[in-house]
Amino acid sequence: MDVIANLFAGIPPDYKWPAEFCTATTVVVWVLSLITANVSQVDRLWTFLPTIYTAYYALLPLLPHEPLFFLCPYAPKALHATMTNDFSPRALMMFGVVFIWMCRLSYNTYRRGLFRLGDEDYRWAVLRANVPGWLFQVINLTFIAAIQNSLLLLLGLPTRIAATQPHTPLAPSDIALGALALVVLAFEFTSDNQQWAFHAYKHAYLAKEAGKSNVQPYDKNQQWPGARLNFVPEDAKRGFITRGLWAYSRHPNFFCEQSFWWIITLIPLLSPSPPHLVYTASFPDLSGLLQNPAKIIPLLAPLKDAVPALALSALFFSSTLFTESISYGKYPREYGAYQKRVGMFSPVGTLEKGLFLALRGKKYAIDAIVWGKGKKD
C-alpha cells in the first residue's frame, strides 16, 4: 500500500482519485483480457467510465475527505474550497447530459450483446488474425487497456474545469450548448436505430432467400421512429446501410459521438466564468518565429483544455480507417463507391463528393451502386 501511496503522491489533489481509479481499471481489464482471451473488457466499461469521472467532479461536495474503502471516491482536503463547498450548476448540468449519453450507449451496447462476457468486438478478432501474437499483446496492454482507459478519464476533465469555476447560475452559453448536446444525442440514437433496423431487415431477407422458415419476417413498424426506412432487397445484397442518415455520412453515429464530446469540452471553455478560453497570445512575425520556434508554444496553450475532444477525434479517425478497411475487403466494389460518394463523418464531405463526381460525369453511375433504385431515406 505504501508503494501505491508513493506512486500517486505527486499527483495534484483534483486528479488523484480519478488517476487511482483509472489505474485500477486498466490493470483489471488487462488481467481479465489475459484470463478470458477476450480484449473487449474495456469496451463493456466504455459506457460507464466517462460518466463516473464526470459524476466525481460534479458531486465533489458529497464526498468524504478520506476514502472509506479501497477505490472509494473522496475529495482530498487539499482541494480548493470552490470545488467542495457547494455544487456547480454547470458541472451538474454536464453530468446530467453525460448521464443521458450513458443511457443511450448502454442501450445500444446491450442490444448488440457486448455486455455478454463471451462477446468480443469483431475488429479485435481481425486485428488478432493479422499481427503476430506478441505484438497483439503489446497492443492489448498499451492501446486497448492503458490508452483507452486514459482517454475515458480525459473525457471527465471538462467537468473538472466547470467545478473550479465560480458556481454561478447557468449562462446562456451553458443552456445553448447543453440543448445542442441533446440534439446531437437524438441524431446519434436515430443513426444507431437505423443501422439496427437495417441489420434486422438484412438478416430476415437473407434467411428467407436461403429458405429458412425459423426467422421472423422483418416489420419496420417494430423499429424506433426515425428508423422505419423503406429497405429493398438490393440493400440486403449490398451488405451495409446507405439510407437515412447513412446517406449523408458513412458514420453518422461516430460523427455525432465526436460532436457530443466537443460540445462537452467547450461548455466550460465558452462560459463567461474563468478559467475559460481566453486567447491573449499575439502571433509573432515570421522572421521571429523562424529564429526562435519556441515562440509558437504560447499560441498552442489554449489547446490543452481541448485535449479530451482532440484525443477522441484522433481515436475515431484511426479506428474508422481500420473499420472501413474491413468493410472494403468484404465489399470492394460497393463500399469503394460508397467512399467515393459519401463523406466519412461530415455531410459537407458528401456534398463536396457529389459535386466533384458530377463535374467528372460519374455521379449517376456511383449513385446507382450506392443507392440503386431505392430512395436514400
Score class of each variant (00 low, 15 high):
206 L>Q: 13
207 A>D: 15
209 E>Q: 14
212 K>M: 11
214 N>D: 15
217 P>W: 00
218 Y>I: 00
219 D>L: 03
219 D>K: 14
221 N>K: 15
223 Q>Y: 07
223 Q>P: 14
226 G>S: 04
226 G>M: 05
227 A>L: 02
231 F>W: 08
231 F>V: 07
233 P>T: 03
233 P>C: 02
236 A>L: 02
237 K>E: 06
238 R>G: 01
241 I>S: 10
241 I>K: 03
242 T>C: 10
243 R>C: 02
244 G>Y: 03
244 G>C: 03
247 A>D: 07
247 A>H: 10
247 A>L: 07
248 Y>F: 14
249 S>F: 03
249 S>A: 03
250 R>V: 07
251 H>T: 04
251 H>F: 00
252 P>K: 03
252 P>Q: 05
254 F>K: 09
255 F>S: 15
255 F>M: 14
257 E>L: 08
257 E>C: 08
258 Q>V: 11
260 F>T: 08
260 F>K: 11
262 W>F: 14
262 W>G: 04
264 I>Q: 15
264 I>L: 15
265 T>Y: 13
265 T>A: 15
265 T>M: 06
266 L>T: 10
266 L>P: 15
267 I>F: 08
268 P>G: 07
270 L>I: 09
272 P>R: 06
272 P>M: 08
275 P>D: 12
275 P>F: 09
278 V>H: 12
279 Y>C: 10
282 S>D: 14
